[in-house]
């Protein structure tokens, strides 16, 4: 079932459709939330709240108008709300939480990429996440961020290049801290 159809079914009160939608989009929604709030617990709350909001507002979605972008827009708004609340409560420490998978237990190297991601500006980070994880087109991201698609494309390429440098290797892949190559 297409995302459009899932949203329509959710608007009619179908929880199973919402669950399918959740399975399809939970990773990009979490990624966008995390890119904005920079904290696992807060991003988790945003993830949860986003799908509750989708269920409530699915009726207002216009079919054929970029469902992923619509969902991302909801997640962004909620993430900024959460960020404001955290800042108001003076608990925001601007520290990127450690991300590790307890099952695979490979935290040391995994952290580097997240740290590198947070060296980018807020907007650059969102562009990378929305394009790479969310699969949004530059044009769709441009609409969400209020900037031309060309600017999004340029920022995306620049951000990837920066990330590559932050990861401790040259852009051409000659060296990588994750896949070390002897010289």
């Amino acid at each position: 079932m297409e995302l459009d159809e899932l949203l329509k079914a959710a608007a009619d009160g179908n929880i199973e459709s919402l669950q399918t939608l959740y399975e399809e989009l939970r990773v990009p929604v979490y990624a966008v939330a995390f890119a904005i709030v920079g904290n696992r617990a807060a991003a988790e709350d945003v993830l949860q709240e986003t799908f509750v909001r989708i269920y409530e507002k699915a009726g207002s979605y216009r079919p054929g108008t970029h469902p992923k972008a619509w969902v991302t827009s909801i997640a962004r708004h909620l993430a900024y709300d959460a960020l404001r609340q955290r800042q108001n409560h003076a608990v925001f420490d601007a520290e990127v939480d450690r991300i590790s998978d307890p099952k695979t237990n490979i935290p040391a190297l995994r952290l580097e990429l997240m740290e590198a991601l947070f060296q980018l500006s807020d907007i650059e980070r969102q562009i990378v996440v929305m394009h790479v994880i969310g699969g949004l087109k530059h044009r769709e991201i441009g609409v969400l961020l209020g900037m031309p698609a060309g600017t999004v494309r340029w920022k995306y390429r620049k951000s990837l290049a920066q990330l590559a440098r932050f990861m401790g290797g040259e852009e051409d892949g000659a060296r990588s801290s994750y896949f070390p190559v002897e010289r």
């Binding site: 995994r110 990429l113 990837l160």
Partner: peptide
């Protein structure tokens, strides 16, 4: 680091973290 590898790792990180 090659961009393709970087993108792959980003996806992998977020799938594991979500």
């Amino acid at each position: 680091m090659e961009h393709d590898r970087l993108i792959f790792r980003l996806k992998d990180e977020f799938i594991a973290a979500t």
